[in-house]
Design a protein around this nucleic acid. Structure first.
Lengths: 350, 350
DNA sequence: CAAAAATTTTGGATCGATCCAATATTTTCT
DNA sequence: AGAAAATATTGGATCGATCCAAAATTTTTG
């Protein structure tokens, strides 16, 4: 193993018999150096095993890292987020744009203690679902551009989100139009709380859903229901983590007379499909199910799942572009789309 | 918006009435500064909105980035890799260790042209499946530690892989022991070639599988078959991309009399399951299927898929630890494990 | 209370490059 | 060929911190 110190630009310059500046130019602004000299420098570099200007030093001079930092949703660790198929979809969107511009993608664990947003070497941040705007403070102080996902953070902060209210509305209206009148809702928990059941007859406040965007979905459900003369307060709600495998069971136990289930998650929607089959119910004859967000699994489940396309990949692409374009503040609101598949049909009973 | 220049350590030092060095120590070696002075500096920093030493400058001085670079498999782009569930598993393993040590995870597009391995700001690299060892050259020249996945790269380079030959052997032996004698193999392509069919009766060279690790699987298959007095040259092989949705169809078309299919990919295994059902065959009565690699989908498919656990997450954890431990070269060989589920049974015909 | 020992603080050099104004060289023009 | 214009090259200053040996201060000891 060669343990001589790493060659620097100065070494190359000396070996090629030119000044540091010329050597620097040969690499970073080749057009300004005579071809002949440029080659001499290239040859010297090759012989010394010099790979080009040290990115660390380059960085210090003009601060462009060529990387984008992703902060996964606050409530989950990095590993958990990567496992979530919807988040994954979003990441692919970001990665696509990074690929285009040749930038790196840095995944930043949310630990405040050591490093994190305060010290990560990136040109900007994409915050996935934040609990408090305060989490973005280090980014602001570092004067790095950032985008907040799934929430409107006011006129001074860029944000990308999907119209969740509209998504919820589309999902519920679809079921209402098919003739359903008895519903069950699978909602999200905020943070790490235990799975929770909300019986009918109680008004639905913000505590019946997780983050802001989930409350919007609930609002959308309520709106479509109310257009049909129904009150969401009469719909039983199960609130669980997206990966909770018992939630589907609880849902069907608690709402045995429901003919349609509205799920705020795709995976929970698919879980309901599985649980219904396990109980010998036929979907969509005995039960209709609509999920939220589109992932490949939705099309491949049996039956395939009717779901709302939450445009996760598109959100990722858009967020990345906002960072790389370095333009003014942008607040984007994407429109969701209902994808009707085989898990919904008119109710047979009732 | 505040557009005054970013405050530096010097500004803080001046405001606190101490020297640069003392201010620096107050942040980076607090034990060496008197508590009283330390607080004075902290107060000055707070008032100026100074967040602590600029990571960019810190970096230049002593070069520790606190991040690990991941180079996705050469033949796919970043976005494609992230979509691959097995790669995803591997990434989760890496992320887990990064979480532990509070490091960032940098995903590096494989474009050689601009940046990439030559300039990424990381402390080390994990190369996923490389075509040529030459791709790791920039890492070596930068004297950064790196690990090569899924291939043994000799005694001077750290590597982590699973014993693919053993995995193949376990899969094929399982089927042989169940009594199968007629097989079909779904293999991988190297790079971007078109889907390819290898008829029986031709000797199987390395061109019948993709990367080194896939050739090992093939060798394992051959070994178990030969123990049962069978020649792999008589087994039809379909070579396709892991995401090719037509490969399963071709496989069943080309090997209609096969009672068992050996797939080098999980997803292709599941695709065969689907295709078989579509044709009205019953798995495992009419056809047995074994996949390679374990992902959640394998347990959830109908019927659940017998597969070889390729220890993807474990590989990720191990590779990350090798980088962070900064120890000597390590060459790890993990043992695969056969997970028997419901997609395999003795053949009914034949 | 002065001298010795221990603890804090300090300025200069450094990390490896880029930028800029000044200088040197080559090319173009009359 | 000599002057003017265009093009290349150069050394000094700089980016924002850390390291280190020397100087200043505080604490301990005889």
């Amino acid at each position: 193993m060669n343990h001589s110190p790493m060659p620097t630009l100065l070494d190359v310059a000396r070996k090629a018999g030119v000044s540091r500046s010329t050597a620097s130019n040969a690499f970073s602004r080749p057009d300004v150096v005579r071809a002949e000299v440029r080659e001499k420098v290239a040859k010297a570099a090759l012989e010394l095993g010099y790979l080009g200007p040290d990115p660390k030093a380059k960085l210090l001079r003009h601060g462009k890292v060529n990387a984008i930092g992703i902060v996964p949703p606050g409530e989950w660790g990095v590993a958990d987020s990567l496992k979530n198929p919807v988040y994954h979809q979003f990441l692919s969107g970001v990665a696509e744009v990074c690929d285009e511009v040749g930038a790196n993608l840095v995944i930043i664990p949310d630990r405040i203690t050591n490093g994190g947003v305060g010290t990560a070497l990136v040109d900007g941040f994409i915050f996935g679902r934040i609990e408090h705007l305060r989490d973005t403070e280090p980014a602001r102080l570092r004067r790095l551009p950032f985008v907040v996902m799934d929430a409107d953070a006011g006129p001074d902060i860029s944000s990308v989100r999907v119209d969740a209210r509209m998504g919820g509305y589309l999902a519920a209206r679809h079921l209402v139009e098919l003739g359903h009148r008895k519903f069950g809702i699978m909602s999200f928990l905020r943070g790490f709380g235990p799975t929770r059941y909300h019986p009918p007859g109680v008004p639905r406040g913000p505590e019946a859903a997780g983050m802001e965007t989930d409350q919007e979905k609930l609002r959308g459900y309520a709106e479509a229901l109310s257009e049909a003369g129904l009150d969401i307060a009469d719909v039983p709600i199960v609130q669980a983590q997206p990966w909770d495998r018992d939630a589907a069971r609880m849902m069907l136990d608690m709402a045995p007379e429901a003919t349609a289930i509205l799920s705020m998650a795709v995976m929970q929607g698919i879980a309901v499909l599985d649980e219904a089959r396990r109980r010998g119910h036929s979907v969509p004859r005995d039960l209709s199910v609509v999920g939220f967000n589109e992932i490949p699994e939705a099309a491949k489940s049996t039956p395939s799942l009717t779901t709302v396309d939450g445009k996760a990949a598109e959100k990722g692409r858009m967020a990345a572009r906002i960072i790389f374009d370095a333009g003014p503040i942008r607040r984007e609101l994407l429109l969701p789309r209902l994808i009707v598949r085989s898990s919904t049909a008119p109710p047979s009973k009732g």
